[in-house]
């Protein structure tokens, strides 16, 4: 567990995290490995885990009915997947596929929610890290929606 704790705290997302809280988070962690093409999860599945990506690239996809999946984002080393772990009903809204070999730390979402509920200091520290991620992704999505490279005039 000590090794996992070190790995968790070394991830960009947990930079500067208190060691004591890091030990609590690491208690919900496990090492994961995905082969190229393997899906980390599919849309509508329960959010059982948050993924701290340590190596490789994960493609986020939405598959419109009858059409090929559309890749709308990629996440790589230092990124986190699973911002909806705190949002009921805790379901994925898209698919996530390993583009190449992916190594990640999986944080058990239920375990983490319970610890955050029991220790609001941990919960607040987690919120302080997740909210900027959510905000940044919202900004990026807005920019993506503008279709800035499109040739059509407004």
């Amino acid at each position: 567990m000590e090794t996992l704790e070190r790995i968790v705290l070394a991830h960009r997302f947990f930079a500067g995290f208190e060691a004591e809280l890091g030990a609590l988070v690491a208690g919900c962690a496990r090492n994961l490995r995905f082969t190229p093409g393997q899906y980390l999860f599919h849309a509508d599945e329960d959010v059982n885990q948050i993924y701290l990506i340590r190596h490789g690239v994960v493609a986020l996809e939405i598959a419109p009915p009858g059409r090929a999946p559309v890749m709308f984002a990629t996440e790589g080393e230092g990124d986190i997947l699973g911002t909806s772990w705190l949002v009921p009903p805790y379901r994925w809204r898209f698919d996530a596929r390993a583009v190449g070999l992916v190594r990640a730390i999986g944080l058990d979402a239920q375990c983490l929610r319970a610890k955050c509920e029991a220790d609001h200091h941990l919960g607040y520290e987690m919120m302080k890290r997740f909210l900027p991620e959510l905000s940044a992704r919202l900004d990026q999505t807005r920019l993506q929606m503008l279709d800035v490279y499109g040739t059509a005039k407004p």
């Binding site: 690239v57 230092g78 990026q140 993506q144 490279y149």
Partner: peptide, 21 residues
């Protein structure tokens, strides 16, 4: 790129996101 299909092996997302990395 803003959007891609499964054949693309590069990044997907907006350019400013690459800068902090």
């Amino acid at each position: 790129v803003d959007y891609a299909d499964a054949g693309w092996h590069g990044n997907v997302g907006v350019v400013p996101r690459l800068i902090p990395r």
